[in-house]
Design a protein around this nucleic acid. Structure first.
Lengths: 142, 142
DNA sequence: ATGGCTGCAAAGTGTTTGCATAGAC
DNA sequence: GTCTATGCAAACACTTTGCAGCCAT
């Protein structure tokens, strides 16, 4: 899980797509490659600002849109919160959100994915993408 | 699936909760009870206006919030669209959204639900609610 | 050099809220 | 009569956009 490598791969993917490599973008890529959580645009802006003082929030938004378009990052729209982002070098997974703490846990189930595909197929559809979120609460031990 | 009955039951649930029954609310309840689709606030406002001319959009929003709080309706936040609503007398189900047409298909899988509960339980969580959306496209026959 | 990228401010979209009045109980 | 619900307009949170100058290529 080498962060520098990951950042480099993301950069390369963009260059290949003919996207210009500005200071702002390099910094945002680095922040995204490093992030272990699921930060939103404002939080990303905050983190990038230490590397590129004065970078504007619109640039962050614009760059995020571009990165999403290139498939380099994923955008998640959880309930009642601004959009959150994560680099897409992670394996595909879904999210469990602790409604008390806001903590996000990743998980993946091949069996569920298979069932989803089956259900769609039965109705004559192909799944382009899906979204599955479990809003959960710590089991109370009684 | 009697619409009048459904509307009546929703009304009763509200009265029991001590919510005042205004013309506006009765009309909105009627529209919601009748709706076969998943209308958003603006569309609901449009439909209610024929019964209560001059009703304001804020009233629709406020009433929807109240109805949701009472558990009488559900709010769905699909990707890139305003929130959509449906009365909660339907059985629990999830949604498949045709990304080309916007059409919403309902479906339900006990097996998936069971797997979800298992996964959450393994990590020490109870599911409070979940959200599963399949963004699909008609299979092309080649 | 040129055309995409940036910062700024302004606009946009969907939704919520403060206030004075109207109307359900 | 009381107190909640309404309509209006203004505020809100998040995100996008128009524009003039900047900078990667």
């Amino acid at each position: 899980m080498n962060v520098a490598e990951r950042s480099e791969r993301m950069k390369q993917a963009l260059r290949d797509a003919g996207v210009r490599m500005t200071r702002q973008r390099q910094a945002l890529l680095r922040v995204l490659a490093t992030a272990e959580d699921h930060p939103n645009a404002v939080e990303l802006h905050r983190r990038v600002e230490s590397q590129v003082p004065g970078i504007s929030l619109s640039t962050v938004y614009r760059t995020l849109a571009a990165l999403e378009e290139q498939g380099v990052i994923h955008r998640h729209q959880f309930e009642g919160t601004p959009a959150r982002f994560e680099h897409s070098e992670t394996e595909h997974h879904d999210h469990m959100i602790d409604i008390d703490t806001g903590k996000v846990v990743e998980f993946c189930s091949d069996r569920i994915e298979r069932l989803q595909a089956e259900i769609a197929a039965e109705l004559g559809y192909d799944i382009v993408h899906h979204r599955m979120e479990l809003y959960v609460r710590k089991k109370k031990r009684t």
